[in-house]
Computed example of a mutant assay.
Amino acid sequence: MSNPYQPQQSNPGQFPGPQPSQPMGQPMPGQPMPGQPMPGQFARPYEHPQEQTVMVLAIVGIFFSICSPIAWYLGSKAKNEMVAQNMEPTSKLKTWTTVAMVFTIIYLVAIGISIIMTVVGGLAFMGAVASESSAGLLPALSAI
């Protein structure tokens, strides 16, 4: 009876276990090289060099509106570069680009509302001044 805890003797030069049918380092047919993504898949997430810049500009853009569109532009550009190189953008880059986009839209809506309110308020003021003293104000303005 043999000892189950001792390795079995094999032929010299032959490794125990199943023998590979392909040479080492060669992928099976239809498989990508080791370290390469499958077709249609992204490689592991990679931090883009501008990722920190996008994050800082998005945070500053919460308080200063000019920084939000810049962060949105740089974040979108970085994401497009990564997708073109078959790399998946990190969730941090996606998040800060989305934050910059949301604040840019909020600022554009706020600017639009303030312009509308200024125009409506100006027209209301002009209408009130004109109806209040149209006879008394016009001669005084024409004298100037």
Rank of each mutant, 00 (worst) to 15 (best):
S21A: 11
E88C: 02
Q31F: 07
V54R: 06
L57G: 08
V60I: 15
P89C: 04
K77P: 01
Y73G: 04
P18N: 13
W72F: 06
P37W: 10
G40Y: 03
C67R: 02
Q22P: 05
L57C: 05
P37A: 10
Y73D: 03
G25P: 10
C67W: 05
Q36W: 05
I66K: 07
K92C: 00
P34Q: 13
P32G: 08
Q31G: 01
Q31Y: 06
I70W: 02
M24C: 09
G30N: 04
A43F: 05
V99D: 02
N80V: 01
P45Y: 04
W96A: 00
Q36H: 13
G30M: 03
V60L: 14
M38T: 03
Q22F: 14
Y73E: 01
T98Q: 14
S68I: 03
P16C: 08
Q19I: 09
Y73C: 04
E47A: 13
T90W: 02
P18F: 11
G17S: 05
T95G: 01
H48D: 06
K92W: 00
E47T: 15
G75P: 07
G25K: 06
A43I: 02
T90V: 04
M24Q: 14
W72K: 13
F64R: 11
V99F: 01
P39K: 10
F42M: 11
P20G: 12
Q36G: 04
L57T: 04
K77L: 07
I62A: 11
I70F: 09
P20Q: 13
K94I: 12
P34H: 11
Q50A: 11
K94Q: 14
I70G: 07
P37G: 06
Y73I: 11
M33W: 13
P39Q: 12
Q52N: 12
N80K: 15
Q19N: 12
G75N: 07
E51F: 00
K92N: 10
P45G: 05
T98E: 14
N80T: 11
G75W: 00
P49S: 03
P32D: 07
P69M: 07
P20R: 13
Q31I: 05
L74K: 11
L57W: 02
G30A: 05
M24F: 13
Q31M: 13
V99A: 04
P39W: 05
P89N: 05
T98S: 15
Q85V: 01
Q26R: 11
Q19L: 10
V56G: 06
L57F: 08
F42P: 00
S21C: 06
P29F: 09
K79H: 02
G75A: 09
E47Q: 15
S76H: 10
M24A: 15
G75L: 02
T98A: 15
F63S: 12
V54M: 03
P39M: 11
I62M: 15
I62W: 02
S68L: 03
T53D: 11
S76M: 09
Q50Y: 06
A84E: 09
M28S: 13
Q19M: 10
E51Q: 12
Q22V: 12
P18W: 08
M24G: 10
E51K: 00
L74T: 04
V99P: 01
G17D: 03
S68V: 05
E51M: 03
G35T: 02
Q36S: 12
P27A: 10
P20L: 08
S65G: 12
T97P: 01
P37V: 04
P89F: 01
P37Q: 08
P37D: 09
